[in-house]
Design a protein around this nucleic acid. Structure first.
Lengths: 290, 290
DNA sequence: CCAAATTATTGATGCAGATTAACAAAAAAG
DNA sequence: CTTTTTTGTTAATCTGCATCAATAATTTGG
């Protein structure tokens, strides 16, 4: 299973996390340096342990250098729902550190290495360097988008589609940080984790994986997954990777007060797509942007 | 149905949206004024129309002054999943304006009034006034948290629990912007919308509502809902409102470079809660924060 | 105020996926 | 290398909710 740990990028001190921020906006060496000043020395979390992100004034952000975790919630009926799988380059503490009544937990699925930073310090940095505040916004929006995709997954996809979508998403996110090859990767989670992430039972996950194998879309060897027919798989799963725009550069660098903008032929209110976007049982194809 | 429109706060020009930002951090009059400078004149969207939020350089943020909308995605199999119900004080365009491949749509469920602002302008403002960048982060984190709750809802709650949770959540969010009384409100959505939000069929939504009524937890008159036994309802739904911390004030106002922090007895790695947090079929109770 | 469209309600039938229960195969631990 | 623990696999049975269908009540719009 250590094919998973194939170290490619992100193991240098400023690896995965800085790379992640640079996906949204460029940072100068001195800016990166300021951020570095906030980071505590590297932390380790062992497999199966909880990653703690206390709220209040002890809130922190943890940047994952290495390893995989799951953010989850347990209901009183004993059922657990995993909300997101966390991979290198992701940030832990994004919902958690901001919540009064703290309600999601994170458990390490493998041994992990983290860079930890006090939220207060990060906010102070953002006051001096606004780009960091914006970068945090983009990070949070990215997170929200991933969650939105998961809602669609669980709410409206069949079991087979869900499993296919899960494989494609995890692969895509690992590949984005150099942890996966083009059409194959080591799945970093057990079927039990998948079941709690997808709202399905373990036996059924197993059957769906078997079905994907039998129908020739994937090949499985232990936890090593290869996409034998990625096109068909993507089509089945209705998969579309999440890609954010970059943070726009400010048109006029600063200080000038922008005048009130005139009304242009804007946004809002338009004929929609022919029929009632809210059709009774079915719906047509999707409408527009958001 | 116009009990819904009981105008309390949020109808003055700087109503719901500014109030929303102030939930996270205090703004001075001059700061608010800068924001005001970016807003285009008020826009209207008619019921059933799509709210357009184009991507790329035409991206915009729309602040809901009035009315209700739904953010959704339609799959190729024709099924629609509503990801979130949008109420006054919410922002439209948070995922949408940041996505390259634009994949979520927003439809107005009632007539709406919006304040629209170009994303580029907002970002430029955030460069001058870092607080706005941070406020956007908090807004996005709030959004992400709501979505996370929806994942749990759809993934692990029974149909009855889901409907109960939906009612409580919408009520809580409406009450937060002065659009609902303490234990009653006008449900701003049809059962069909609920069905697409909760991943259930319309007939089943109907049956679950009937069951909640018969068991004495709610009373229904058309779309007017009263919580007859809110305690029991909350318990059934395992409901916990989303409450974010406020943005911490910077300890040293600015410019001073914060020195590298020493390692304190930190976060991470701890015995977890007794047994394997990842138990086979069930799970124990929740563990820690995030 | 009437016609058309949308929304709510109720019932009968079927299936996707849960549940339970073994057992096999791998990892981990010693 | 052996024991223990975790993970994977398969099968039999049961059920929650979808689906389909039809009708009643509302709302909207001309």
């Amino acid at each position: 299973m250590q094919g998973l740990t194939r170290k490619i990028v992100g193991d240098r001190w400023d690896g995965a996390f800085v790379a992640r921020l640079r996906r949204y906006i460029e940072f100068s060496a001195s800016e990166i340096n300021d951020l570095r000043g906030l980071l505590e020395v590297e932390h380790s979390v062992r497999k199966r342990r909880d990653v703690v992100v206390e709220g209040g004034s002890h809130a922190r952000l943890s940047f994952v250098k290495n390893g995989v975790a799951a953010r989850y919630k347990v209901l009183h009926n004993g059922k657990r729902q995993i909300v997101n799988i966390i991979v290198p380059g992701d940030v832990i503490g994004l919902p958690g550190s901001f919540l009064d009544t703290t309600s999601f937990a994170v458990v390490a699925l493998t041994d992990m290495k983290l860079e930890v930073c006090a939220l207060d310090d990060y906010v102070a940095l953002a006051h001096r360097r606004p780009k960091f505040g914006l970068a945090l916004s983009w990070l949070a929006v990215h997170e929200a988008t991933t969650y939105a995709e998961h809602i669609v997954d669980i709410g409206r996809r069949t079991a087979l589609e869900r499993v296919a979508h899960f494989l494609l998403e995890i692969h895509d996110r690992l590949a984005a940080v150099g942890r996966a090859a083009a059409t194959e990767f080591d799945l970093p989670v057990s079927q039990e984790i998948m079941s709690d992430a997808l709202g399905l039972s373990v036996p059924h996950i197993n059957r769906m994986l078997a079905e994907l194998r039998e129908s020739g879309m994937i090949a499985l060897a232990g936890r090593h997954v290869s996409f034998a027919d990625i096109k068909r798989l993507q089509q089945l799963a209705h998969f579309e990777p999440v890609r954010l725009t970059r943070i726009p550069a400010p048109s006029q660098p600063s200080t000038i007060i922008v005048p009130k903008r005139p009304v242009d032929r804007t946004t809002v209110d338009r004929p929609a797509v022919g029929r009632p976007a809210v059709a009774r049982h079915v719906g047509g194809r999707a409408a527009l942007a958001n």
